[in-house]
Design a protein around this nucleic acid. Structure first.
Lengths: 252, 252
DNA sequence: ATGAATTTGTACGTATGTATA
DNA sequence: TTATACATACGTACAAATTCA
């Protein structure tokens, strides 16, 4: 016999959408090898009944995991486990504007520091602006909704003219640059994105639960408006031991 | 009055899903500025009625365009046009199939090791195949044409049936997967690409002129054929101190 | 400040199409 | 051919966020 207790009607906390809770549940079952890599999940209809939700909800949950490349589905066959991630936060796709929107919506960015700064030296070089230019600086940890530990530390340098966009916000759940576009009329024409390996600096390491000098990954983005003006410069720090930047190239 | 002729009940060809036809239709209306950048689309319910489909189908269509970053939606507000398709068609530079071709053409890959291997453990997991599956393994340094020092070490695990593709090649100046497609008829349908920070293992570090344990970056790619079959698995190692993985999302 | 109206998001149900084994 | 399982598509209802009178 094999239909054990793991597969039971879920009890749902309110506040988070069911399909996300289902997604997390499936994630767990995959992680602990209840559904191993290469095997097929039970059919959607069956999962729906087991979990006590509609098939529609199951499909939404599966769609989440498919986006992350963990599952693949084939008509007439089933839904296959493609990869194990000890932790679904350890993978991240943001190679399109849409990806950035989705990422922002699925996470919470808590502002811890906010101040005016003049950028100089290395920072100015990387930002591609002349030293001494003033920016509004924001920084703080980023969480997946409902989690206690941040998976990322996010810094942003914002054109001071756009400061009012975030003036009375403490927690952000949407992409900052879409707010900027909306409230300022300025349009982001180009986003330059870089991924680098680094040794984590001290405070960042602390926030991520790592030691200074540990392996880390940064993703920096330069949001350019018309006339190649830098509207926003963002740096995200991730721990390097379990974080992956993922892209899927499909051949339409 | 403003409900002109562009917005009419669509007639659907069979063979392609409706939501894709709706997505294409909306895309056209956005391209020809019927719905300008920065404006809101009509509400989903209204679109559904106009187009003669269900709201569900409209939402699927909108989801498509959101994935590409052309639209964004906010609860209680509406669906905003973020970009026109043309802007983002060329969004991958170092990051498309074409980008991979260019990369391969600009470099030389020298084969140093070639042997049959059975993949196990960690490697099998990362490849997403069952342990014990046999692959043809190729490895060696990659140079920019005319340079003396490699900037990258490249490993590849190839489906053994495709072994003949590289049987009498020592230096490769084209993308391996294009050879595979050409000589085998198999078509690469999807490429899953991951970027990670690592500590360089010994032999790799040596080839890159670094010390073991130094900062490094890996890029791994899984080339999937039809039926989600893994045709090729490639790992590239770069030094981490001066290497950046760059993407531009441009809107010219 | 409150409440109503609007709009997207979530969740349910049902039926039929289509690829696979 | 038949059964299975995902994909598409119709419908309904209510929740949650936002806007505005």
């Amino acid at each position: 016999m094999d239909g054990q207790a793991v597969e039971m009607k879920l009890t749902f906390e309110k506040g988070t959408p069911r399909y996300l809770q289902v997604a997390r549940h499936l994630q767990k079952l995959i992680d602990d090898n209840t559904y191993g890599v290469g095997t097929l999940l039970p059919p959607e209809a069956e999962l729906a009944e087991i979990l006590g939700v509609s098939r529609h909800t199951v499909r939404q949950a599966i769609a989440q995991l498919r986006e992350r490349g963990m599952l693949s589905a084939r008509k007439g066959v089933g839904t296959r486990v493609e990869a194990v991630e000890d932790d679904w936060r350890s993978r991240f796709t943001a190679d399109s504007r849409g990806g950035l929107f989705d990422f922002a919506r699925a996470t919470e960015w808590h502002f811890k520091t906010r101040k005016m700064v003049e950028v100089r030296g290395q920072t100015a070089t990387e930002m591609g602006v002349r030293p001494g230019r003033k920016f509004f600086y924001l920084s703080g940890p980023r969480y997946y909704a409902g989690e206690d530990n941040p998976f990322c530390v996010n810094e942003v340098y914002l054109d001071p003219r756009l400061k009012s966009v975030v003036s009375d916000i403490d927690v952000l759940r949407v992409a900052l640059f879409s707010l900027v576009e909306e409230k300022s009329g300025e349009r982001v024409k180009e986003i330059h994105q870089d991924v680098r390996a680094i040794h984590l600096p001290e405070e960042i390491a602390h926030d991520l639960g790592r030691k200074p000098g540990d392996l880390g990954l940064t993703m920096t983005r330069r949001y350019m408006g018309s006339g190649a003006r830098l509207l926003e410069y963002a740096v995200q720090y991730y721990r390097g031991d379990n974080f992956t930047y993922h892209t899927t190239l499909s051949s339409t």
